[in-house]
Write a protein that binds this DNA or RNA. Structure first.
Lengths: 336, 336
DNA sequence: CTGAAAGCGCTAACAG
DNA sequence: CTGTTAGCGCTTTCAG
């Protein structure tokens, strides 16, 4: 592999000059700049950024710790992140994980060891250890879409509490009173917020909260199917279901289909995420949309701001987007 | 940020000893090892891998250059890659791109500048510049799923020609003779191979190839809709459609639905990828499946082998998986 | 404008 | 077993 020395030798100048020439410093004559650049190009020289960053203590790299992308909404977010990195000339190191504090912690640590300039984390786990670790990280950190309270980190995401309210009010306005909630895990921040919004909205409209209508673990299809069976066989079965994600919503619809229960005639379903091609389903899904791409972009922008001002003053920033209801065909008036 | 010197001072030993202790070298007494590790832990010391790799010329990092994940099949592959990296203690740097040789080249370059130990590329572009660049890369490179001929790189992927044949023979066995092909871009390797398989299989069964039945650009929904309209209005309209991806297939189905054309009674449709939840569609999609997760894993394993043997002997490896036909409800006998 | 020298944080080789 | 030294490839003073 060519180093700066090799280029220097071929160009007949010192390594220091090569460095300056390649970085377009103004204290190098144009003629040497041109010569050095030509030689470097010819040799296929690629500067060793690792070595550079050891002296500049800047890697122009940011890290992302995010759960696996089973959910297309996460991909849109990732796209937004990648897009903003690209236009700001930062390299992105994406660490996918299966969720959980332990893996998240070890990935964040690996990133710090590689001296990324900043980190974006979408935490799905919430151990004390992770929380303390995040609080202590010396480089800028922004949490995206999922939150851990009390870390003092910046945050960019959507208002899930509001999202739940929007969706619930849609159902209630259609006359539904028996509404079930299908979540993943209550420990996941957004899921907790959604569930809270679900409950509070019921209360607001004087509808009693029935805990047997709140079901968890629905990212596993087997569990989901059992949950559907169970809930549809309770004394007063729900006439509407609110799902934590479009994927769960679609799974529920499929299961109801097998049970010969019609959507939306018998049961209304509302999802969360607005996954593009679910609008192509035979019963297009009513859902609550977030500006995922934008969230990804804005997260990076906020992070880069923090990096640029280098921890000088640190006014914690929060950027919270408002979800939007998208009514399609999977919700309708409550069955009498 | 703590350095090895700080730890050394606190532990009352030399930096060299700290390094050895933390790396668990056997020429350090157990007592100092314990002490050093305790002190490091207390200080929250995280070794600077950047600095380490400068001397070891090993980063324990591999890079991935892959197009955006609009297609869930790519995500499965990415999961496989990430999974294998994790179990081999390598960090993965994922570079997503919008496709095209230029971006791919610049991302590969960024990775090399960061001294990754090896690179996985799924090239969708194919400029001479990219090809030459890839050929010259001095670190191990494995191409995944998409190929550029003549680079001498290792390859792990699926046999798309065979995949096309399998799908086509299914349609032909159902009596179809007018079969259309809906692709993305012929420059994309897999798409070209699929189209070739489509054509050759027609020939094999003595069915004339009609170029007006081959349509491109279908990753754009508008173009796709126009293509569907056009092809369904030709003199002898197709009774079956082979799509380059499940996403395209589902878009076609949706469009046909709007045109009041029934699947599979009027037109059979077969996709490619086996995206999990399309099996939940009201007309479950017949498709051709690839072992995506496995492809991701195997790609990493092959790459790590190359890295381990450090370019000693380089028998080019190719690992090609056989696609599998999955018959569901979107294909049926040809309409008379 | 150019070159020489120091040093980023770490490991490896070699003394002791 | 431990410490000292050199050096990975680069940038950045600081002389010239």
């Amino acid at each position: 592999m060519n180093t700066i020395k090799d280029v220097a030798k071929k160009a007949g100048v010192s390594p220091g000059t090569v460095s300056k020439a390649l970085l377009d410093r103004h204290d190098v004559s144009n003629s040497t700049k041109r010569r050095v650049k030509r030689v470097a190009e010819e040799m296929g020289y690629i500067p060793n950024i690792i070595a550079r960053s050891l002296v500049t203590s800047k890697t122009n790299t940011i890290g992302l710790v995010t759960p696996y992308l089973g959910n297309p909404a996460l991909i849109e977010r990732l796209r937004g992140v990648q897009n903003a990195c690209l236009s700001n000339k930062y390299l992105l190191i994406t660490c996918l994980n299966e969720g959980g504090a332990e893996e998240e912690l070890s990935q964040a640590e690996a990133l710090i060891a590689r001296k990324v300039d900043g980190i974006i984390i979408t935490p799905t786990g919430n151990s004390i250890k992770l929380k303390e670790f995040i609080s202590r990280i010396e480089i800028p950190v922004v949490l995206m879409s999922e939150m851990i309270e009390g870390t003092g980190c910046d945050f960019v995401g959507e208002d899930d509490y509001e999202g739940a309210k929007t969706g619930m009010e849609h159902l209630i306005s259609l006359g539904h009173r028996n509404i079930a909630y299908f979540g993943s895990f209550p420990e996941i921040y957004s899921d907790g917020r959604l569930a809270k919004g679900y409950r509070d909205t019921l209360e607001k409209y004087g509808i009693p909260y029935r805990k047997e209508l709140v079901l968890w673990g629905n990212t596993d299809r087997d569990i989901l199917e059992k949950n559907v069976e169970r809930v549809m066989n309770t004394v007063s079965a729900p006439t509407a279901i609110f799902a934590w994600s479009d994927i769960i919503a679609i799974d529920i619809m499929s299961k109801l289909g097998k049970m010969n229960i019609n959507v939306p005639e018998d049961v209304s379903i509302i999802g969360y995420d607005n996954i593009d091609f679910l609008s192509l389903f035979h019963i297009p899904l009513t859902t609550v949309a977030q500006p995922n791409f934008l969230i990804g972009q804005k997260t990076v922008e906020l992070l880069l701001e923090c990096i640029e001002r280098d921890g000088e003053n640190e006014p914690t920033g929060k950027l919270i987007f408002r979800p939007e209801l998208i009514v399609r065909k999977s919700t309708g008036p409550a069955k009498k």
